[in-house]
Design a protein around this nucleic acid. Structure first.
Lengths: 224, 224
DNA sequence: GTGCCTCTCACCCGTTCGGGGGAAAATCGC
DNA sequence: GCGATTTTCCCCCGAACGGGTGAGAGGCAC
C-alpha cells in the first residue's frame, strides 16, 4: 500500500460562478474554529456552512447539510474524529473528508485514511496549503501534500502489530506485570512473553519500557 | 505555593478611549494564529500589533514593539514558549505574558508560571474566557480561570522531583538500562537504583515502565 | 492439499530489576 | 553550627524479565 503524492496547485479547480465549496468545520478548540472559518471565508469560492466541536454534532450536521467538504479534527472529546469519519462514510460513501490534526501521530493518520478520509493536513501547515488541499479534494482527488505522503508511507512501511499484540501492549502501558497481563487476557504467562518477544522486535526495542515509550510516541496507544 | 483564583468578569477594565490593548500573538500553527488575531480584533479596545510563529521571533518582536500583552503558545519548533518567557521577563520584568497551550500538561503549566507568565489558558476555552483573561491581565492581576487554578494546585500538591531524579528519568525514557544510565550520568549503578526507588514512590508506580508512562502523561519529560 | 500467519503454550537460563536495609558526604537554609 | 535535603554509594536477595528454541492448533489463501 502506497500513498500517492498528487499535490495540486492552488486554484486548480474552477468552480461554477455563483456557487461555493460548502465546508463543514469540526474542531473542539474555539480559537482554531474561528481561524479555520476566517481562512475559508477569505478564499474565493469557498464558504463555511456550519461548525461542530465534537464528532457527534459533526455527524448530525453532515446528515442535515451535506457539505461538499468536511474539515475534521481527530482528537476531540466524546466521539473522536476517526469514529465520526467511519459513521459519515458508512451513510455517505461519497463524503469528502479532510483530516486536520495537531499531531503527526502516524497511527492516527493511518486510521483516518483507512476510514475513508481523502486527505490529511497538519495544523502547522500554511493557509495556502490548507486552501489548495480543499480545492483539490473538492475537484475529486485524494490530495496529499508531499510531506504528509512521506509520513504515511513511512507509517505503512512500519511493521504491523497483530490484534493480540496490541492487547498486550495496551495492558503493559497500564503498568501491569506479565502475570497480570496474562490473567487479564486469560492466557498463560508464557504466551504473554511470547507476544512481548515479537512486539519488541517489531518496535525495535529491547524491553517493555522501550515498547511503552515507542507506542505512545507513535500514537499506537493513547494515554490521557 | 497556592495559585489564586481571582477570575475577572468580562470588561472589568475600562481602558482609556482611543487606545487599545496591544497584543502580540505567538503560535506556530497558522490557522490558530488567524483565529486568535480575528478573535482579538473583534474585541473592542484590543488590537494585534504583531504575530510570531516561534520563540525567537517573539523575543525580537517584544523588544521592538513592547506590546501590552503577549499570548504565547508553549510547544513550538526551535525556542519554545517557556524559554521565550524567561528571556523576555529577564529583560522586561513587567512583561505581561499569557500562556496558551493545547495540552493541560501540568508540568508545562508550572514551568511557564514559574517563569513569570501571568496567566494560563487552554485552547479548548471559549473566546469569551480568552478575551476576559486578556482584559484581566492587562488590568494588572494574575488572572486564572477557576479550572486552570485547580489544575495548577493539583500539580503543586504533587511531589517534586529533584534534578538528579529528573536526569535518571529522562535517561530511562531513552530506553537505557540501569547500567547504561549509570555510565551516562557518571555515577554507580547502585546510585541509579537508589534514585529509582525514590522516583517510583514519588510517582506512585512500581517499575520503570510505569515511571516512563507517568512522566510522559504529565509532561515531565517530552518525547517527540 | 500445502504453505503462511496467528495464537497458544512450554522449558531453560542468565540477567536485570526492585525492595529492604544502611550510611557517608555535600549542599542549603535558618 | 545544626538540621533537612540531596546525592552518592554499599550489601543482600528473591522475583521478574528477556533471549533462545521448539511446537501444536486454527484460520486463510492459493
Amino acid at each position: 500500500m502506497t500513498f500517492e503524492t498528487e499535490f495540486t496547485a492552488p486554484n486548480m479547480q474552477q468552480h461554477p460562478p455563483g456557487t461555493s465549496i460548502r465546508v463543514l468545520v469540526v474542531d473542539d478548540h474555539p480559537p482554531m474554529r474561528v481561524g479555520l472559518v476566517a481562512l475559508i471565508r477569505s478564499q474565493p469560492g469557498m464558504d463555511v456552512v456550519a461548525e461542530a466541536s465534537d464528532g457527534e454534532r459533526a455527524i448530525e450536521l453532515y446528515d442535515e447539510l451535506r457539505p461538499d467538504i468536511v474539515l475534521m479534527d481527530l482528537r476531540m472529546p466524546g466521539i473522536g474524529g476517526v469514529e465520526a469519519i467511519q459513521v459519515i462514510r458508512k451513510k455517505h460513501p461519497d463524503a469528502r473528508i479532510i483530516v486536520l490534526s495537531t499531531y503527526d501521530l502516524d497511527e492516527d493518520i493511518h486510521r483516518a485514511m483507512q476510514s475513508g478520509a481523502r486527505s490529511y493536513l497538519l495544523k502547522d501547515m500554511s493557509i495556502e496549503e490548507i486552501a489548495s488541499t480543499i480545492r483539490g479534494v473538492f475537484a475529486g482527488g485524494a490530495v496529499l501534500p508531499p510531506s504528509v505522503a512521506d509520513r504515511l508511507n513511512e507509517r505503512a512501511e512500519r511493521e504491523q502489530l497483530t490484534e493480540r499484540e496490541r492487547d498486550v501492549l495496551e495492558s503493559l502501558i497500564k503498568g501491569r506485570s506479565n502475570k497480570e497481563i496474562a490473567s487479564s487476557l486469560c492466557i498463560s504467562e508464557d504466551t504473554v512473553k511470547s507476544h512481548l518477544k515479537t512486539l519488541f522486535s517489531k518496535l525495535h526495542v529491547r524491553d517493555r519500557t522501550g515498547a511503552a515509550v515507542e507506542a505512545i510516541r507513535h500514537g499506537i496507544v493513547h494515554i490521557k
